[in-house]
Write a protein that binds this DNA or RNA. Structure first.
Lengths: 248, 248
DNA sequence: AAATCGCTATGATGCACGTTAGTTTTGCGA
DNA sequence: TCGCAAAACTAACGTGCATCATAGCGATTT
């Protein structure tokens, strides 16, 4: 099932069997994407949306000099651009960070869902609002935290999301991104990202090694980044102990 | 008509006469709010959403020490918390900046719209995605611009939105907020906000006087803040010259 | 084995912005 | 018209992060 991870363990909006089947049937094709490719550019008119199955992708805006500001990092189970369904044209680019696999869903299929299944429509809507809630947490990160706090917040968030996706055991996860990517998330230079990561290592909070992130002190890292997972709307309905631990 | 300004001049999603009437009928009551009151707190369960009719309001997150980071400023015609309809619980607070008037719409009424009017539902969805697009522009502002650029970007955005709402003539508008509010938008201290506003004044770009904002050089200010209004999805369908000028 | 490339690492220097501690101005209610 | 609080403004000083420059290191190519 390609849509297994979509909205899994999200408060009150998990898909039922029928809804999941409908969404599966809406998939038009599965595509693979190389690392570091732009798949959607700002301003194009879109007629499909994409669900991320494997790998990591991102969305970004760039400034006059071509410097990027990431506005979202997507993990497996996330829609990349469901917001393109109502918007049709995006204000930003979508690109892969690592090699990735995606499911392509035509807007025509979403029209049918929209017309016939108001409850599922509301859940799809919810999932785009989850993205907006993450945007707000990112605004807090950039507006109110220092560089160490920003990185700590980002790594705490990513850990929580990957636990929910079943891709982190709660302290360790693979995340094939570079220090430069982190700097584009956190609005700092890659030089400074390097110094911050060293500091997190020296304070025994977290070890970042590009291919592997190891959190030594989950609570300490969360405290340093003032991270509170409430905005992710994760809930342990299935009684998963890893999620219980996360929310404790 | 209370809903006059809602989605006015937004690309492809303006409400038709019937839709507007349905939305009007969904209004349960009109309320006034004093300046500087919190109307929704993070974590409450909500059963209504609110449309802003008059005045200015905002949404914010606060940090451990109680310092606020604004994540949105709402102007007349904006929903304050339509995202509470799918989400039910918000991750942030909603408060007034000035005295304000709002229309209250119960989620029950939105359920009926959701069930019976897929096209209107998609437009409501669109309006919440507009907020998300603004969040992304705000992320760019905080992540990639210096203090002067951030304030220039914010004032350019606000001008554009108020032109669309008919509350700015393109260069001058009333905005009853303080320098401290600006600092909470831009992630800087109020002391520095003051310095930045002086600089914008001295460079003959913009004069901010709390009760009145006067933009002396619209294009210069936009350039300084790398402001591009595309993310607001404004379009002049009605051939309004003020909007034409804005997008030129 | 040499060459190339992307990523990580680190030191020196400077500036934008924070912090602290005020003073002055504005506006509004009594 | 006074009185007072809130907002605007200013100055002195400290610091976190940017910038610039360079070097090491591992993987891939030839």
């Amino acid at each position: 099932m390609f849509t297994d991870k979509f909205l899994r363990d999200r408060r009150g909006v998990e898909l039922d069997v029928h809804e999941r089947a409908v969404l599966e049937k809406a998939i038009f094709e599965i595509r693979t994407i190389e690392a570091r490719k732009t798949v959607v550019q700002a301003g194009e008119t879109l007629s499909v949306s994409m669900l991320l199955l494997e790998g990591f992708m991102c969305r970004y805006l760039d400034d006059r000099e071509g410097m990027r500001q990431l506005v979202a990092v997507q993990v497996p189970g996330d829609f990349l651009d469901l917001h393109a369904y109502p918007l049709k044209i995006l204000d930003h680019d979508v690109a892969s960070l690592t090699a990735a696999t995606i499911a392509v869903i035509p807007h025509k299929a979403l029209d049918e869902i929209n017309a016939a299944m108001p409850e599922l429509t509301r859940k799809l809507w919810f999932s785009t609002l989850l993205d907006a809630a993450m945007h707000r947490a990112w605004l807090f990160r950039l507006g109110r935290l220092d560089a160490v706090g920003r990185v700590a917040h980002f790594l705490s968030e990513t850990n929580a999301r990957l636990v929910s996706a079943g891709l982190s055991d709660g302290t360790r996860f693979a995340l094939g991104i570079t220090q430069a990517d982190i700097s584009e998330v956190c609005g700092i230079t890659s030089v400074h990202a390097n110094r911050v990561l060293r500091q997190l290592r020296e304070e025994r909070l977290c070890i970042f090694r590009s291919s592997l992130v190891e959190i030594l002190d989950v609570q300490g890292l969360a405290r340093r980044g003032q991270f509170n997972p409430a905005y992710l709307y994760i809930e342990s309905t299935s009684g998963r102990p890893d999620i219980e631990r996360l929310l404790a």
